[in-house]
């Protein structure tokens, strides 16, 4: 009872967090802000998946959470490397 209530509360808080990330993703103003928003979005999604795993009482979401953690970091790192190195060609 307590657990299912707090799971719903946690899901609601994470949903609001994700909406805030999407808002920052939409308004920018700079590209780095957008990538930061995406990075945070990834982390919040991982938290959401873990909470859902407790809710549905299953561990199948674990792998997708781990893969999201890997892809999120690689995406951010790739963008920053592109920004830092891209100018060399100009």
């Amino acid at each position: 009872m307590i657990l299912s209530l707090s799971i719903y509360a946690a899901l609601a808080m994470l949903a609001v967090a994700i909406l805030l990330n999407l808002w920052r993703l939409a308004i920018g103003p700079d590209d780095t802000d957008r990538v930061l928003a995406l990075d945070t979005l990834f982390i919040n999604t991982i938290a959401l998946l873990v909470v859902l795993g407790i809710h549905f009482d299953t561990t199948v979401y674990f792998e997708s959470a781990l893969v999201l953690a890997l892809i999120g970091f690689i995406g951010t790192a790739a963008f920053c490397k592109y920004q830092l190195r891209g100018d060399l060609i100009e």
Partner: peptide, 30 residues
């Protein structure tokens, strides 16, 4: 109770982080 506690604490910190992302004034503070 313990699981609920950690869930709520974790989710509220995630929310605070995202609020910070949304309302702090410039990129480095965000």
């Amino acid at each position: 109770l313990i699981v609920s506690f950690f869930l709520l604490v974790g989710a509220s910190f995630a929310l605070v982080g995202s609020i910070g992302l949304a309302r702090l004034p410039d990129f480095f503070t965000r």
